[in-house]
Simulated assay, not measured.
Amino acid sequence: MAKFLNTSATNYFLEELIKDAKDRLILISPFLKLNDRMKELLADKNRLKIDVRIVYGKSELQPEEINWLKELTYIRTSFCKNLHAKCYLNEDLCIITSLNLYEFSQVNNNEMGVLIRRADDTELYKDGYEEAQRIIRISDEVRISLERVVIEPSNDHKLEPDERLGKLTTSKLAIKLGVNTTQLMKNFVASGVLEIKEDKHYLSTKGKEIGGEFRMGSYGTYFLWPENF
């Protein structure tokens, strides 16, 4: 059953949601200005190589946020035009709230929210998660250099344990090579590493020979590639 949250409870459960994330963390907030505690928690997720997606939409990133994000490989930031939703998820919890991920709001404003536990409200959690994924798909990823690139709405969102064994998802490989995911997928098709059938990408024989793998994860299908590709 969903749980009502007042201001203090929203801040408390948001912190717990971030701390308890083991595979996936999604933070959607129009305004983004992180306090020191949030930065500490997110930096720890980055050290653990947990895939973190932050989506914002109301203003450009502040210089302090830009400098901080430069150090974090596993935190990806996206800009979504006309974003007004505030939603925070890990693999078990979802918070839908009026609270922005903004230092001033967390200290000064009166907020409300609802906590949804996946184990108790599976369908409600699923609806929130799917809408969060839609927002991510329509967002523009912001590189550390602040260059915006449109991400192909692929399903290689989840950081799987395989990545820690020398293989990267397409999006992580694209970041490493300094290109956007869409262009990398086009290059794979042009070189025969991937094939397109019925508007879907498939791993070719050549792709398999160079070490590419197709996987089905908890959050959908995705490709893995050798880290030294």
Rank of each mutant, 00 (worst) to 15 (best):
K81V: 03
N6P: 10
T221R: 10
T182H: 08
R118N: 03
S139K: 09
R134Y: 11
E91F: 13
L184S: 01
S98N: 06
R53T: 00
I136D: 14
K58W: 13
S59M: 14
G207P: 03
N67M: 11
E65N: 02
I151K: 08
A174K: 01
K167P: 01
W68P: 13
L165D: 03
P161E: 05
S204V: 06
L34V: 15
L184W: 09
T169N: 04
E71M: 10
K3S: 13
S218V: 12
I116P: 00
E71F: 10
L69Y: 09
N67E: 14
K206P: 07
D140F: 03
S98P: 11
R215T: 12
E147W: 08
F223N: 01
G178W: 13
E103L: 09
K81E: 09
R148G: 05
L5Q: 09
Q133P: 05
I144Y: 06
V179P: 08
M38A: 04
E123L: 06
N35R: 08
K39H: 09
F214N: 02
Q183N: 02
E64M: 15
D92L: 12
D44I: 14
L177I: 11
E65I: 02
D162F: 10
E123S: 07
E91L: 12
K172I: 03
K200Q: 15
L124N: 02
R143I: 11
L32S: 02
Y125D: 00
L99V: 06
L69W: 07
L41D: 02
V114W: 15
L5R: 06
K167M: 10
V179L: 03
L168G: 04
F79S: 03
N90E: 06
N228C: 13
C94L: 04
E130M: 00
D199W: 03
F79E: 01
C87W: 08
P161N: 03
K208A: 08
I26A: 14
K126D: 00
I75E: 07
I50S: 12
C80E: 07
I50G: 12
C80Y: 08
N187S: 04
L34S: 15
E111Q: 11
T73F: 04
L101Y: 04
E91I: 13
M112E: 11
P30R: 08
M216T: 13
